[in-house]
Write a protein that binds this DNA or RNA. Structure first.
Lengths: 225, 225
DNA sequence: TTTTGTGTAAACTTAAGGTTAAGAACATGG
DNA sequence: CCATGTTCTTAACCTTAAGTTTACACAAAA
């Protein structure tokens, strides 16, 4: 769902820095925009609504700290991640930077790799709740939202149906024995009839309108596209 | 609401570091706990549920990275802020650290002031996610003013109703288990009957005149437009 | 053909929520 | 401190649809 590329705005007065940093971030799949000074940074930020802004502290026409203050005072930029990038590695400015409301602070010279790692770490924290979703082809199963989407159409499954699909899809291609399914979903102490699984399978097939669950006669079921 | 002091766990094998860092953090009003090695860190984390964990990378009985991996694999520690603290300032370990799912990375020797600034910056970011107004479609929830607006019509909700709506709307689309709702809103020690949540949900649905709370039978509720 | 295993539809059972009203618990303003 | 109004919780009952079973049809293998 949230597959839109993250938008990053970098503001620095040194063209070299802009180029190196944007080159590396673009390679990581980010959408990168640049600004040469503080005013331009603010202007572009208002138009672009970036997810993350990297600000050089020492810039003409408003310093990074000033830019940060201005942006943070607007509700639109409360969410935006802001990183300061600067040659000053002295403690005083580090503290000032973080107190302004920046999320991170990196001293130059810095390797692109470290920058990228930090950027990713910040995005990771912002996102959370990912990785858990299962994506197989055009089927997307999200255990947190408890919903299933096929070709981006949400489909409502009942609890047991969802659990069953989730189990099968957790290892696409692998066959689950009927017994295995029973113990995984119903537990060892609950005993249900033979046709119960079939009925649930049927309902899933019906609702998904997609032939993704294959019967392996005498053995069990598997999820496959 | 969230006036409880933040709980911080520090793990390092050097007693000096533990003392300096905890002294400084305590002065800032944090509740500080310590661990001497990786295993102890995990053990104490499970009992204490700290808001933030500072891990030395080089520790006996599991390194900081190992501890981070173990904790992050548990849902309880998904939200916890983790900072690595280490003497290694080489690039490689910085990257590895951040990719493990840490939120920040600080090299020794580091001044207590900088550490505190970073800790505060991380907490600030975390808090921002509370207290801020939630806007989903034509629904606007402002926890500061304590009011809800649908299509710019203010609606008066009682406290519990508001808390419940705010919780659900904080992660639109995500399903909240009944248990989760109970602990988030009523706390762990208060015990309320089974139908209590339902009644509040009903009132919200009634007042909002909008079908935005979906029941997921056998699971919980979710906010969705 | 018989056996074995699965698909399907419909009927049944029941657990999970919805609804309502009533009375505690709490707050507010004289 | 009481009167009043509001919010919260509970209990009893109602409704719904999830989950299961039954019964039978069908297909493939033996």
């Amino acid at each position: 769902m949230d597959a839109a590329p993250k938008r990053i705005l970098i503001a620095d007065d040194e063209p070299d820095i802009l180029e190196i940093v944007s080159y590396n971030l673009q390679n990581e799949g980010f959408e990168v925009y640049t600004a040469k000074n503080g005013d331009e940074a603010i202007e572009r930020a208002k138009i672009l609504h970036p997810d993350l802004i990297i600000l050089d502290i020492m810039m003409p026409k408003k310093t990074g700290v000033e830019v940060c203050n201005i942006l943070r005072s607007q509700s639109l930029f409360q969410e935006t991640i802001i990183i300061f990038l600067t040659a000053l590695s002295d403690e005083g400015s580090q503290i000032k930077g973080l107190e302004t409301g920046a999320d991170d602070y990196i001293s130059k010279p810095i390797s692109p790799k470290v920058l990228i790692s930090r950027v990713n770490a910040l995005f990771r924290r912002l996102n959370k709740e990912k990785g858990k979703t299962i994506n197989v082809g055009n089927v997307c199963i999200d255990p947190v939202r408890f919903n299933v989407a096929v070709n981006n159409n949400n489909i409502i499954l009942a609890k047991k149906e969802f659990e069953l699909l989730h189990l099968l899809a957790s290892k696409p291609g692998r066959v689950f024995l009927r017994n295995e399914i029973l113990t995984q979903i119903w537990g060892t102490d609950v005993i249900v009839g033979d046709r119960t699984i079939d009925v649930h399978i049927r309902k899933i097939r019906q609702k998904l309108e997609l032939d993704c669950i294959t019967t392996v006669k005498g053995v069990g079921y598997k999820f496959e596209l």
